[in-house]
Amino acid sequence: MPRTDTAGPIAPPATAAVELAGVRVTYGTAKAPVTALDGVDVRIHPGEFVVLVGPSGCGKTSLLRVVAGFEQPTSGAARVRGALPRPGVGAGVVFQQPRLFPWRTVGGNLRFALARLGVPRAERAGRIAELLERVGLPGTAGRRTWELSGGQQQRVALARALAAEPELLLMDEPFAALDALTRERLQEEVRALAGRLGTTVLFVTHSAEEAVLLGSRVLVMAAGPGRVVAELPVGLDRDPETDVAALRASPEFARLRGRLTEIMRG
């Protein structure tokens, strides 16, 4: 069992938002297999913001892809709200790169997603305006994606993921390619957004600071093969109206960041 820094047990709900039991993922051939994940057990409660941290090659993205239904475990079981994960069903996914259609406007990208979700044509304009307001980009529906900054494009990608009103949001290092200031602003927006909507989030990062700021719980992974070796509950204030600048400067934030860094190095 992975070690934990928790003060006491938390009674889990009857149905987990995400549950992985003995998940193993192997790539390559029978003669030269590469084990990306081995014996991974994870249970995520509805409404939790769980962050995965660990070195490159430890299987963070593979784990996320299993939860998204993009690939099947070689052995073990994966469930999302008690059912087998299926791509595009019940989970929104935000990648490291926005992956927008460059020939479409901002609104066109969101309109395409809404059409695939079966949203009636008459309702799409209103939904687009609501989604852009939600991610802090009001009035940008008519702009071309290439006219936006990297941070703005990532917000559009987030709005597209939220279009399906998913109960589960999967984010794979979505801010890694952004400058420090934009990254901090988007961290704060995602933290507040998840708090307001009560969305369950599984977030991948390499950064101890980002993990402590965003997560209600952090899972630490190690490679060779990929497995969860520790977890750190984060007891910081999760009110969407929290002053995040003050939170970053608090002694408890520094303590948790230091503790997580120590675990990751160990």
Rank of each mutant, 00 (worst) to 15 (best):
residue 134 R to M: 15
residue 25 V to F: 06
residue 221 M to K: 04
residue 209 E to S: 14
residue 44 I to Y: 05
residue 15 T to M: 11
residue 166 P to G: 06
residue 26 T to S: 12
residue 216 S to E: 05
residue 140 T to Q: 14
residue 172 D to Q: 08
residue 24 R to Y: 03
residue 146 W to L: 14
residue 73 P to S: 12
residue 148 L to Q: 07
residue 99 R to L: 15
residue 261 T to K: 13
residue 192 A to M: 03
residue 133 E to F: 06
residue 72 Q to C: 00
residue 160 R to S: 09
residue 11 A to H: 08
residue 206 H to W: 07
residue 91 A to T: 09
residue 98 P to S: 13
residue 140 T to L: 13
residue 257 R to T: 14
residue 237 D to F: 03
residue 256 L to A: 08
residue 223 A to H: 01
residue 225 P to W: 02
residue 107 G to R: 11
residue 146 W to C: 02
residue 74 T to M: 04
residue 31 K to S: 14
residue 209 E to H: 10
residue 241 E to R: 15
residue 121 R to N: 02
residue 261 T to D: 10
residue 239 D to K: 02
residue 35 T to H: 12
residue 189 E to K: 06
residue 183 R to T: 09
residue 44 I to N: 06
residue 16 A to H: 13
residue 102 P to R: 07
residue 45 H to R: 14
residue 156 V to D: 06
residue 86 R to I: 10
residue 199 T to Q: 02
residue 223 A to N: 00
residue 22 G to I: 05
residue 158 L to S: 10
residue 255 R to A: 15
residue 176 A to S: 15
residue 118 G to S: 06
residue 264 M to T: 04
residue 145 T to Q: 06
residue 37 L to T: 01
residue 178 L to Q: 09
residue 238 R to Q: 13
residue 190 V to W: 05
residue 195 G to N: 03
residue 13 P to T: 08
residue 72 Q to L: 13
residue 71 E to V: 12
residue 146 W to A: 08
residue 55 P to D: 09
residue 179 D to S: 11
residue 245 A to P: 03
residue 211 A to P: 11
residue 121 R to W: 01
residue 171 M to Q: 04
residue 30 A to N: 02
residue 8 G to M: 02
residue 184 E to S: 12
residue 103 W to A: 07
residue 217 R to L: 10
residue 243 D to T: 06
